[in-house]
C-alpha cells in the first residue's frame, strides 16, 4: 500500500471514530476507555512480527527480545482490557419489573 492509500484509511477512520464515539452514552465512558485500551493493543501485530523475525541480520537479536517483551505487554492489555470491560458491562442492569 502506498502512503496516500494508508493516509486515506486513517483520515476516514478518524471521522468514523468521531461519530461513533459521540454516540457512546456517557454512562459507558469508563468501559469505553477500557475497551479502547484493549483494542489499541492491536500494536501486538508489530510485536509479533518483531518476535518472529528470523535472526541473522544485525540487531535482530535485540529486536526479537524487544518484540517478545512487547508481546507480553500487549497481551496483558488485550486480555485484561477485554476482561475488565466485560466485567463492567455485565454490571449495568435495567430496573427490575415491579413484582
Amino acid at each position: 500500500m502506498d502512503f496516500i492509500a494508508i493516509l486515506s484509511i486513517f483520515v476516514l477512520a478518524c471521522f468514523v471514530g468521531y461519530y461513533v464515539v459521540w454516540s457512546v452514552t456517557p454512562a459507558l465512558h469508563t468501559p469505553l476507555m477500557a475497551v479502547t485500551n484493549a483494542i489499541s493493543s492491536v500494536i501486538i501485530v508489530g510485536a509479533l512480527i518483531a518476535a518472529a523475525a528470523s535472526s541473522g541480520a544485525t540487531g535482530s537479536g535485540v529486536a526479537k527480545w524487544l518484540g517478545l517483551a512487547a508481546v507480553v505487554l500487549a497481551s496483558i492489555n488485550i486480555f485484561g482490557g477485554f476482561a475488565v470491560t466485560q466485567r463492567m458491562l455485565a454490571m449495568y442492569r435495567k430496573k427490575e419489573k415491579r413484582s
Binding site: S54, S60, G67, A74
Partner: peptide, 26 residues
C-alpha cells in the same frame, strides 16, 4: 486504566525500537 495505558505506550516504544533495529523484518 492508567496502568494499561502505560503498557500500550511501552509496547509501542518496544515495537518501534525493534523496527529500528531490524527494519528488514518490517
Amino acid at each position: 486504566v492508567a496502568a494499561f495505558h502505560s503498557l500500550v505506550g511501552l509496547a509501542a516504544v518496544a515495537v518501534a525500537c525493534a523496527a529500528f533495529l531490524n527494519p528488514v523484518a518490517f
